[in-house]
Amino acid sequence: MTFFEFLVQYWPRLLSGAGVTVVQFFLAAVLGIALSVTMGLMKLSPNRLVSGAAITYIEFFRGTSLLVQLYWIFFVLPLFGLTIDKFTAGYIAVGMNIGAYGAELVRGGILSVPRGQWEAALALNMTPAKRMWRIILPQALVNMLPPWGNLMIELLKGTALVSLISVADLMFEARQINSSTFLSAQVFGAALIIYYIMARFMLTPSMRWLERFMARKMGRA
């Protein structure tokens, strides 16, 4: 069977898998970004207890594998009475994993804002929350966007692991088709190309656009 014939026959399943991958990606991204900002800010807190909690979270999730975390959330948490369906367990694990890496980026971004900006906000009598929200975070965001682009690609690649707890994403569909047809080169090749298109022609340009948009907003372009 040629590659073209293969695509004609199997594109609906690959497409539905890709759709699940996209949904998993967005849910994990929302969770990951929320955790990154929260934990990044917490790590900068002068309160030892607060920063300690953030450090524990970051070191724990960066020190173990995503696959181990995924299995733990899906297979071990139910033993404590916390049953999560596979779809939710998938994006929670991926999101929590990415959140730990993102928290370090947020922290680095905030620390890269010049000291004078903090002092100026203080001189204008801004409350700490207002200072963070209106002065520090926007500038930190511009500084940290380029590494976030890479992290988003890592996130997209990370979603492939949810197939191992039977979430019907692109990776899962590819494996299913492979085990029923043995057309390994065609099916895995097609899946590789779809992931590549998502990363290179959809995700990367969006992040570039966001970088330019933010730079313009900040009057730096």
């Binding site: 690609i153 997209l156 690649k157 990370g158 492939a160 692991l161 197939s163 191992l164 990776m171 590819a174 494996r175 492979n178 390994s184 895995f188 090749g189 899946a191 590789l192 992931y195 590549y196 990363a199 290179r200």
Partner: peptide
Amino acid sequence: IRSTPLLLQIFF
């Protein structure tokens, strides 16, 4: 190779 999942490459 950098933009596609390692898991998929292993299967491939």
